[in-house]
Design a protein around this nucleic acid. Structure first.
Lengths: 145, 145
DNA sequence: ACTGATATTGAGACTCAATATCAATTACAA
DNA sequence: TTGTAATTGATATTGAGTCTCAATATCAGT
């Protein structure tokens, strides 16, 4: 059993919520999938495997996983939100290629320092930071557009 | 005549586009309005003044103003995009209060340095950066939620 | 000032992501 | 095993934003 599943079960217990086969399947799928899927994409993939699954359940479960610290939501600048693994993954930021959509992850303690400094200066209590660099990845720089 | 209007007229000429009464009105409204409005909010406000104006025209004109460097688009994390003045405004970033929506602007050359360093390290050709800190402003820290 | 080529407008249909509703179903503590 | 509270999922709805296309307005060249 993956650790994330224990985490989920613990979280559910703590909140008087129930483990269901749908939640199990969605978590499973989420963990197997390497890259960032939007909820709708996940819904269509899951629908292939389990035709009776509902869109709302997928959305709800992804929110749930986010609350349980198993997933985290990222905005990549296209219309949809996306989810990535969070449990045991270091907090990171993204370089986003505007041409091919490629994501490069990086970590930076400078960003965290910046967050603290700037917030302090403005009596602001920071929660989370968004830092994304949009541009062209190595491959896409070769093309005009 | 505000400078932004000359800028717009120049931009239109350069691109064989035409000045219209709608564009004039939308620019006017945009300049008068202090804070960040979403296109739809602008549309409804403008509709009060000029009932025959179309939603698509507002959206199109805001894009146009962005291309002409008069406006710039920001994402505040709610569903809608928002536009702020850009002409003669220094490039800045935002602290965003999750509770009341308050915006605090700040400038930071460190962010630009970071952008360059990190991009170089990953052979990435950067275009623009998004940096936002979400949290609670001074007032909202007093409340539980 | 007129005119014609061309850019623009706007009503409404449409797309797409996401949320709300609510009757039927399921999980699980006792 | 059972009662009840949480959950599901089909469907409707919302909301932001785009597309279409016939009608209209602008403006460069005369």
């Amino acid at each position: 059993m993956p650790k994330e599943k224990s985490v989920l079960i613990g979280f559910l217990k703590k909140n008087k919520m129930k483990m269901t086969s749908q939640r199990d399947k969605i978590l499973d799928f989420f963990l197997k999938w390497e890259k960032h899927l939007s909820p709708d994409e996940m819904y269509y993939e899951l629908k292939k495997l389990y035709p009776r699954i509902g869109r709302a359940t997928v959305y709800r479960t992804l929110k749930l996983l986010t609350k349980a610290n198993i997933a985290s939501q990222v905005e990549l600048g296209d219309g949809a939100s996306r989810f990535e693994h969070k449990y045991n993954h270091p907090h990171h930021y993204h370089l986003i290629c505007s041409r091919c959509g490629k994501l490069i992850e990086f970590v930076s303690d400078k960003i965290d320092a910046l967050k603290k400094n700037i917030s302090k200066k403005h009596s602001f209590l920071p929660n989370n930071v968004r830092f994304e660099i949009f541009g062209l990845c190595k491959k896409c720089q070769k093309y005009r557009n």
